[in-house]
Computed example of a mutant assay.
Amino acid sequence: MPEPEHADPPLAPDELVSTGGERELLETFLDLYRTVVTRKLSGVDDEQARQRLVPSPTTLAGIAKHLAAVEREWFQTTLAQQPPLPSGDDWSVAADETVADLLADYERACEESRRTAARFGLDDRVPHRRMGQVSLRWIYVHMIEETARHAGHADILREQTDGAVGFDG
């Protein structure tokens, strides 16, 4: 009797948009990496999330806090032209901040970003103090790069923490 063929896994979100339009692709890839970051923090306790496993101050908790600040910087301050939030060390996690708090804040920041971006077209441009102007398209590409980069950091930190690897671990 022949071996049964192994079924392919279901298509991932980025695969489902393989023929999608530009905006759908940009939004899907950004959301994919936002989800990866969230998954990397899910299942670790507050102590594990604060653990410094590399020479830099990068921690799982710090990644979530940093990315929430970056979401707000690009989508609220830059795109929506809202006043900047008080700046500080967005990698530093306060003693009373829990993983649940950080994930909830990151998810709120991402949802605010989605609502803000929905009001703009990809070609819409807004002033930027350093570059003169930026388009929503550029913000999306930059945020994909930023979020994917830190998702990779989180993947390594999570593997060092408890051995979990991959998109879901």
Rank of each mutant, 00 (worst) to 15 (best):
I144Y: 00
I139K: 00
G121M: 02
H150F: 07
D123K: 01
D155F: 06
K40A: 07
C110E: 03
D31N: 15
A94M: 04
A68H: 03
G62Y: 06
E71M: 10
L102W: 01
W91Y: 13
T19L: 12
A12E: 15
T35N: 15
V134K: 08
K40C: 06
G121C: 05
E145D: 15
F29I: 12
R34H: 11
L60G: 01
D101G: 05
S113T: 11
R119V: 07
L67F: 05
D123P: 01
V99D: 04
L136Q: 04
Q81E: 14
A49E: 04
K40F: 05
A61N: 02
R115A: 12
P55G: 05
I156T: 15
S56A: 13
D46F: 02
G62T: 06
G62W: 04
P83A: 15
D124R: 00
A64D: 08
I144N: 05
G62F: 03
Y33A: 02
Y33I: 04
Q82K: 15
G152F: 06
A118C: 02
D31G: 15
P13R: 07
D124A: 12
M131P: 01
A104C: 06
A94W: 02
W138H: 07
D45H: 03
L16D: 09
L157V: 12
G62V: 05
L53P: 08
A117Y: 01
P86C: 07
Q82I: 07
A95I: 01
H128A: 01
